[in-house]
């Protein structure tokens, strides 16, 4: 459970459809960003680094009583390749894991991508981005590894709760403890590996441009932490998400998340709850596909221009 690859069949239709629709522009934007670096041979580098992450997950770091942990890699990649490239590498890893190992679902790919390749990578980048030039640098690296795991986990918990998977305070408490431990370990491993990489070749580290701002870094880190804390807290309440939805004045939680353009549209013989869901799902996929094509076209036009 440490990586929280959500399989298919768990998330409700509105949740996976929304997250697929969110993942596409996110990854498309990262792809566009990475294109600018193509002249430096980015594409093979991203592929081989994806392989590196797979391999790194087999290298054990001893913890206590013979137990050991391993690197998850999102933060490390964002600090070395940059967040845009790290998003692409992690997305590719997630796609392959879901296809080859059925580790994480295909419809849930959007959710897993948002959690790990977008939220995880950017939460890992943020503290490093602002703290990497000062004497708080090691703290920035640690915070990056720590936050990237915790933010991914919080997002996953959030999605499971929204899908109606029940959790009570005990379960949320226990899993929070597990996640915090995993996150601390990820922070420590990221610090150790990044230092070793820097000793080999300082050029392999991303040097964030712009002024280092310690207060901005601490503020950003703190706010991400508070958001994560909030998610865990709400998850622990018996009807946390439902009451939140009610307070927002929205009766059904599905309506907030997935204001389907066809909500009032009913094909006569497909009437009923499930018909709407199926249509919603299809509509979601169609939207995603359309977005993919549009982004692809835009990229192609940009390239030929």
């Amino acid at each position: 459970m440490e990586c929280m690859h959500i399989p298919d069949g768990i998330l409700s239709v509105p949740v996976w459809a929304t997250l697929n629709a969110a993942a596409v522009p996110g990854v498309g934007w990262a792809v566009r960003r990475a294109r600018q670096g193509l002249a430096e041979g980015h594409v093979p580098l991203l592929g081989v680094m994806g392989a590196f992450v797979f391999a790194a997950q087999r290298m054990n770091f001893p913890v206590v009583f013979g137990a050991s942990g391993h690197l998850l890699g999102g933060a490390l990649l964002s600090m070395t390749l940059g967040p845009g490239a790290a998003t692409i590498v992690l997305t590719s890893i997630l796609i392959l894991q879901s296809l080859l190992f059925q580790d994480g679902g295909l419809l849930a790919l959007g959710a897993n991508t948002v959690n790990m390749a977008l939220i995880g990578v950017w939460a890992g980048w943020l503290p490093y981005r602002f703290l990497s030039n000062g004497n708080l640098r090691t703290l920035g690296v640690f915070a990056g590894g720590f936050l990237s795991v915790l933010a991914s986990a919080a997002a996953a918990i959030c999605e499971l709760r929204l899908s109606g998977v029940p959790m009570n305070a005990t379960i949320v408490g226990v899993s929070t403890a597990v996640f915090v431990a995993t996150a601390v370990l990820e922070g420590l491993i990221t610090v150790a590996v990044l230092q070793a990489v820097e000793r080999l070749n300082p050029g392999w580290l991303r040097k964030p441009q712009g002024l280092p701002s310690r207060s901005a870094g601490l503020l950003a880190t703190a706010s991400v932490l508070m958001m994560i804390g909030g998610v865990f807290y709400i998850s622990a309440l018996p009807d946390g998400f439902e009451s939140l939805a009610a307070r927002l004045g929205v009766a059904s939680r599905e309506q907030i998340l997935f204001a389907a353009p066809m909500a009032d549209y009913e094909v006569p013989f497909l009437a009923g709850e499930w018909g709407r869901k199926a249509l919603g799902g299809l509509a979601g996929l169609t939207i995603i596909y359309g977005l993919c094509l549009t982004v692809g076209r835009l990229l192609a036009r940009q390239r030929s221009a």
Partner: peptide, 8 residues
Amino acid sequence: VLVMVLQS
């Protein structure tokens, strides 16, 4: 780009 990264 994504497909090529997947391939490599």
